[in-house]
Design a protein around this nucleic acid. Structure first.
Length: 410
DNA sequence: TTAGGGTTAG
């Protein structure tokens, strides 16, 4: 049965996998050869992880305890990963805490869990704890830790990790890790270091290497270089290098930062025509941003109306912010009405609109929005700085400073 | 037979 389960999970047929397991579970006891073992629950947990269903994971977790498989490290690691996939980081951490022995894979699983769930600061703290427990990081752990640095903008920590892997004897830096280094430098503001690493890679670059560098240049406002790299990537010089949908996000971001409307439209069109890729919300979002930055608000609105998919709140908010900044009250009010349908109770939309009314001297309208805001949920603003490889987080309206002691140099 | 890799709009 395990082989069939494995096949279903591999082909992402999670329904079939769970159905097979349920039937086998029901039949248990009637036959002597009940084939449920720790491998079975491992595959079932993997199916649950793909589905990210909280109830299913908790149900299988209960079964794991009942069957006595809770001390098997493979099962425990899969539980950590499954809980993380369902955004239940506390549960993932609880499983980890209860593990009698932890190896590098389960440490990496929990570090990834925090990165995946928007807590890169906690991820780096764990990375340091892991080292203090003398568990040696491997290339996967380091790749994930570098991603946490990139998310936090923690350049010092990223540099330390980079020099650690370069100096450590016998440590093999594979391409995925090198790509993570490029991404870390680009996101942490050292575009020169990112580019040096990219140049060093030469012919061993893959599509992710190219994409990371294109996105990096775009984020630094170096649109010309980003687009030049894209054209170079597509030239025969580098063999067959097919851009993917993320590469196109980088290209559209570059166009947006440089105000290249026509080029942006052309790239969006070429995405499906030349590469057979379907634009996603993020691509349309880039185009809306591009039109807005050029001051073409009506074109941006028409673009949203003509989009083959319904605009999400992020796209509408891009448009609303641009209307507010450029003083287009009428269009702003129209977009805000759509936003209220798409995502009501988002305080920042009302703040944007209220400020727009205030800037236009429309005090009654402003007061009306302010009155509505009293019932809205407010999410506090948050920022962080890195000092001597420690990340310090500040929450607005909160005098407490959360010093996150994740010093790297221990 | 068994666990981990992270280039994504604002």
């Amino acid at each position: 049965m395990n082989e069939i389960l494995k096949g279903h999970v591999k082909s992402k047929s999670t329904n079939k996998a769970l159905l097979l397991f349920r039937n086998t579970w029901r039949r248990r006891g009637r036959r002597d050869d009940c084939s449920i073992d720790s491998y079975t629950v491992l595959f079932v947990l993997k199916a649950c992880m793909i589905r990210s269903c909280e109830e299913e994971i908790k149900h299988v977790h209960a079964l794991v305890l009942k069957l006595g498989f809770h001390c098997i490290v493979f099962v425990q690691t899969m539980l950590v990963n499954s809980y993380s996939g369902a955004r239940l980081v506390k549960d993932a951490h609880k499983v980890f805490d209860e593990m009698p022995e932890r190896n590098v894979v389960c440490w990496t699983g929990l570090i990834s869990a925090y990165v995946d769930n928007g807590r890169p600061d906690r991820a780096l703290k764990l990375f340091r704890e892991m080292q203090m427990e003398n568990v040696e990081a491997d290339s996967v752990t380091v790749t994930v830790a570098l991603c946490a640095c990139a998310d936090l903008g923690a350049l010092e920590m990223g540099e330390w990790i980079h020099s650690y892997v370069r100096c450590k004897r016998g440590f093999k830096m594979d391409l995925q890790l090198k790509n993570a280094v490029i991404n870390m430098y680009a996101k942490c503001g050292d575009i020169g270091a990112a580019r040096r690493m990219f140049d060093e890679l030469g012919r061993s670059r893959n599509v992710t290497t190219w994409t990371s560098m294109i996105v990096g240049h775009a984020l630094h406002g170096q649109a010309e270089e980003a687009l030049r790299l894209f054209e170079e990537m597509r030239s025969r010089k580098h063999g067959v290098m097919v851009p993917n949908d993320v590469t196109y996000i980088g290209v559209l971001m570059a166009c947006s930062h440089a105000g290249l409307v026509e080029e942006g439209r052309r790239y969006l069109e070429s995405m499906s025509k030349e590469c057979g890729l379907s634009p996603r919300m993020a691509h349309y979002g880039c185009m809306v941003d591009l039109l807005c930055r050029r001051g073409q608000l009506n074109d941006a609105y028409q673009f949203v109306v003509d989009m083959p998919i319904r605009a999400n709140a992020v796209v509408l908010r891009t448009l609303l912010s641009a209307c507010s900044l450029q003083g287009n009250i009428a269009l702003g009010a129209k977009v805000r009405r759509q936003l209220l349908e798409t995502e009501p109770d988002h305080a920042s939309d009302n703040v944007i609109m209220s400020n727009a009314y205030a800037a236009a001297g429309m005090w009654d309208a402003k007061e009306m929005v302010r009155a509505q805001m009293k019932h809205a949920r407010k999410v506090p603003g948050c920022s962080s700085i890195e000092l001597k490889s420690s990340v310090h987080k500040f929450i607005s309206g909160d005098s407490r400073r959360q010093a996150l002691r994740n010093s790297a140099r221990s």
